[in-house]
Design a protein around this nucleic acid. Structure first.
Length: 563
RNA sequence: CGGGGCGUGGCGCAGCCUGGUAGCGCACCCGGCUGGGGGCCGGGCGGUCGUCGGUUCAAAUCCGACCGCCCCGACCA
């Protein structure tokens, strides 16, 4: 129950000059958030109401799968981070206390929670276990951006599962996946659960929950029955018309032509008939040429998963063993060759164009396998229109609002979290970790549902259920009616924001639509003369009316039908 | 970390090139009118022009360094 007069809800007509993302502009304009520094934001009262509503939904669903809520500190000793090998991560904030002791600000809480479990759990009888908390995360991001979409400090619900083996971990993992689906459904958010890269987390599996929206930093590849982060997506390539193979590679003069476009234009062949060569240096195998079709791009995440985390682009001076940049090719070189599988499967009757490893020259009619040996691997980035099970994929930007990881025993082994099984043997605990960001969920909802007038909150996360706009001045009959309705709506269990300010109707309507509560109720002179209460459904701005008699109950019923 | 841009009242901007009393709109305060889509009239308050240094009789303006913020890229447990 909130009266707007005197409430700290500073709305603005203009978005901040430096705001780019829609959610950034609207959340600032609506008075929900304010910036403190780069990647540092305060939630103002109305914004915090949204955050807490999302938290509560998350909490209920976590409790429903047996999660136990607790709270761990942000500040902590560096020691466990050393033991897990994470002390040198650049995003980790480090500081010293007055005695010079080294401390870190937690970016997640695997180290802390695993330490507790290592101290406490002794027996398989104490497993499985799901522990979670809502806590600030601190990350020294290289580039915070877009309002609260990517910040250096944010609240995360992170939970951790502890199980006796991989099969039990899979059960905890699936519980979380199901809980997260329920959370996003309750929040009214559009989302995809996508296959994800395990990244530096290690472990054996990961999914991300992605909310599609234009401001998203990630890309998801989608087809009926298929959803994956583009970082790991695999699909069948679109066909390319290849020239027939000749009996042997033939040199072609290509003076100064170093790009795929230049060479394909000059030779009159499609870009896909070329092989692009990327020289990389892998930690344990040295210089390697990675080849993809000319119209494809190397996917660095997939490449890392093939060649190992230590892979990096080769420096120009490292290319002596092959040829000059721009004219690199696989024929006659003495380095390992990784050939993208989109090419590897094309058979021996077609010839590609490749660099000849000498200046101003390419080779045509090059047949993989006949003219060079290779190791096939899937290292290309999928393109929109590629096929999965015969159906074309599309690629959409999305915000990562949650992720779930099968960690395995990486943290438990590093921190000594073991248990004794029925035979009295010591076993490492199998862990999973599961993060979800309420602020990103809120921002994603703004992105997904806003219109030109402002935010359109899904019912479940709106700061208030109903905004009551009172147009009458103090002392008028319509003002008295608004005051009465305010109480009656609240008695129906609705969270009501009552605009009782001494302001003009235009300003009140504009502010109400900016803030985006799902239902607006207007009380003015017309209400008295017509005997009808006017309602506006924020999403779609549809007008409704209900008889004054029993209006509060009718409003509640209508509210319950909203998205 | 590389590239680009911006710092002038609470917000959005002009002024800077060509140095000479710091301005506009909105917001805010007071009075009055108005009262169903950011209304009107009148009167006001509020700014070390990001910081430090330099040039100059004189610096928001020219020069240098630094700080902060935004965007693109790199990066992203």
């Amino acid at each position: 129950m909130t009266r707007l007069a005197g409430y700290f809800l500073p709305t603005e007509k203009e978005p901040p000059a430096d705001a780019e993302a829609l959610s950034h502009k609207l959340m600032v304009r609506a008075g929900l958030i304010r910036q403190v520094g780069a990647g540092l934001w305060s939630f103002l009262p109305a914004g915090w109401r949204v955050h807490r509503r999302v938290e509560q939904i998350v909490r209920e669903e976590m409790d429903a799968i047996g999660g136990e809520e607790m709270l761990m500190p942000v500040l902590g000793p560096v020691e466990p981070w050393r033991r897990t090998g994470r002390a040198d991560i650049e995003e980790l904030f480090k500081l010293h206390d007055r005695r010079g002791a080294e401390l870190v600000l937690a970016m997640t809480h695997e180290e802390v929670v695993t330490g507790h479990v290592a101290q406490v759990v002794r027996s398989y009888r104490e497993l499985p276990l799901i522990l979670y908390h809502f806590q600030i995360k601190e990350r020294d991001e290289p580039r915070p951006r877009a309002g609260i979409l990517r910040t250096r400090e944010f609240v995360m619900k992170d939970s951790y599962s502890f199980d006796r083996d991989a099969a039990a971990l899979a059960v905890s993992y699936d519980k979380h996946a199901a809980a997260y689906r329920r959370i996003f459904e309750r929040c009214g958010l559009e989302f995809h659960c996508v296959e994800a890269d395990v990244g530096m987390m290690g472990g054996s599996g990961a999914h991300e929950f992605m909310a599609p929206c234009p401001a998203g930093e990630n890309e998801v590849a989608l087809a009926p029955g298929y959803a994956a982060n583009v970082e790991v997506a695999t699909a069948d390539p679109q066909p390319v018309r290849l020239p027939p193979a000749s009996s042997a590679p033939e040199p072609v003069d290509t003076p100064g032509l170093t790009t795929v476009e230049q060479v394909s234009t000059k030779l009159g062949v499609p870009a896909g008939a070329l092989l692009k060569a990327f020289p990389v240096v892998a930690e344990d195998r040295g210089l390697t040429l990675v080849l993809v079709r000319g119209d494809h791009r190397v996917n660095e995440v997939k490449l890392r998963n093939v060649l190992g985390a230590g892979v990096r682009p080769a420096q120009p001076e490292e290319l002596d063993a092959v040829g000059p940049a721009g004219f690199l090719g696989p024929v006659g070189v003495d380095v390992a060759i990784v050939l993208d599988q989109a090419v590897a499967g094309s058979g021996s009757s077609f010839g590609y164009v490749t660099g000849a490893n000498r200046p101003d020259t390419h080779l045509s009619g090059v047949v993989p396998g006949r003219d060079f040996a290779f190791e096939p691997a899937d290292v290309r980035r999928v393109e929109a229109g590629d096929l999965v099970d015969g159906r074309p994929i599309r690629i959409e930007p999305a915000i990562e609002v949650a992720n779930i990881f099968k960690l395995g025993t990486r943290y438990s082994e590093a921190l000594g979290a073991d248990y004794l099984d029925e035979q009295g043997r010591s076993q490492p605990i199998w862990m999973g970790s599961y993060g979800i960001g309420p602020a990103r969920i809120a921002a994603a909802a703004v992105e997904q549902f806003a219109d030109e007038h402002g935010i359109c909150w899904p019912r479940a996360m709106a700061p208030w259920d109903v905004e009551l706009v009172g147009l009458g001045r103090a002392g008028s009959d319509e003002h008295a009616l608004a005051e009465r309705l305010y109480g009656e709506l609240a008695e129906c269990g609705l969270q009501v924001l009552y605009d009782d300010r001494d302001a003009g109707p235009g300003e009140k309507f504009a502010d109400a639509e900016l803030l985006g509560c799902p239902l607006r109720v207007t009380v003015g002179k017309r209400t008295l003369t017509g005997g009808q209460l006017e309602l506006q459904l924020r999403r779609g701005r549809e007008q409704r009316s209900v008889p004054l008699e029993g209006a509060a109950e009718a409003v509640k019923e209508l509210w319950q039908t909203l998205p």
